[in-house]
């Protein structure tokens, strides 16, 4: 509001002191690791755990990494994109129902959305391995109705990996969507109906645009971790579904090729940043960036 009188300035020192904890936090947990990651990506690729590593500004690490690993990189973005789309559709329906239709069950339903966080990510994904197992009831049922052939399986397929990603990151979609939908003044929807919009049109002309900040936040919070995830591909997929996270993990922990792992990490980060920026622009919620 423009006519609110600004409070009297307290001088720069107070502001500086208030900013200090945040600045220390960022320096310790963002700037330092980020620097170290970028430095790693520029190591001499011939280094090893035994001979040691050295920053040699070896930019060819990036092109080498892309050449060797572009398939899992693209696959990661595609899987994450599909999982995010599923999360958006499911999450929107869920968040909409909780925000507008749940009445007194609202709190309970919200608790149920975050309830999976009470057990570990790993355990939850492992239990999906049991559910989707070749002799499990899901496969049996799908085979019985001939959706799956007698030799078809779910485990070790892209379906299982994408389903796992969708399941694991759904709450990250639902919560921001809910926060955004819950804020919408119902009188605006009534006004739309009063102005000759049927409920369907009222949704697309009023509810949906007003929920775009939640859509933007939810897709970011889902897409970013999904694109970097390796647990789902490892537990629910086969080598054919390996994602970039699996490659990076393998390069770091098994091969010891720190330079390639670092380069891939930086590439992934840059790609995600570009995709997200483009998307958020498009969603018209610039104030989030």
């Amino acid at each position: 509001m423009s006519d609110v009188v600004a409070p009297r300035r307290r001088g720069p020192s107070v502001a500086a002191w208030l900013l200090l904890p945040g600045a220390i936090w960022l320096a310790l947990f963002f700037v330092v690791p980020f620097y170290s990651l970028v430095a790693t990506s520029l190591f001499d690729p011939n280094g090893s755990v035994l001979s040691g590593y050295e920053v040699t500004w070896h930019f060819a690490n990036f092109s080498d990494a892309l050449r060797d690993h572009w398939r899992p990189l693209v696959r990661s973005l595609v899987y994450a994109g599909i999982a995010t789309s599923f999360c958006l559709v499911l999450g929107y329906l869920l968040a909409y129902a909780i925000a507008f239709k749940a009445g007194r069950w609202k709190t309970l339903l919200l608790v149920m959305v975050i309830a999976p966080f009470f057990t570990s990510f790993l355990v939850r994904t492992l239990s999906w391995k049991l559910i989707l197992a070749d002799n499990g009831w899901v496969v049996d049922a799908l085979q019985a109705v001939h959706v799956l052939g007698p030799e078809d399986r779910l485990l070790a397929t892209p379906v299982a990996v994408i389903a796992g990603l969708t399941y694991n990151f759904l709450p990250f979609m639902v919560l921001p969507l809910y926060a955004s939908l819950e804020k919408i003044d119902l009188r605006l929807i009534e006004a739309a109906q009063d102005l000759h919009a049927n409920p369907f049109v009222a949704f697309f002309k009023v509810t949906w645009p007003l929920s775009l900040p939640g859509v933007a936040a939810g897709t970011m919070l889902t897409f970013i971790p999904a694109a970097g995830d390796y647990i789902n591909a490892q537990l629910l997929g086969s080598p054919n579904e390996r994602m970039i996270g699996n490659i990076i993990q393998n390069l770091f922990t098994t091969t010891g090729d720190y330079a390639a792992a670092g380069a891939l990490s930086v590439i992934l980060m840059a790609l995600i940043l570009v995709l997200i920026m483009t998307w958020v622009r498009k969603a018209g919620a610039e104030d989030l960036v």
Binding site: D185, R187, L188, E190, A191, A192, D194, L210
Partner: peptide, 12 residues
């Protein structure tokens, strides 16, 4: 058509 008590203009 209605002129609402709080106007209910579409903010977007």
């Amino acid at each position: 058509n209605t002129v609402f008590q709080n106007y209910a203009l579409f903010p977007h």
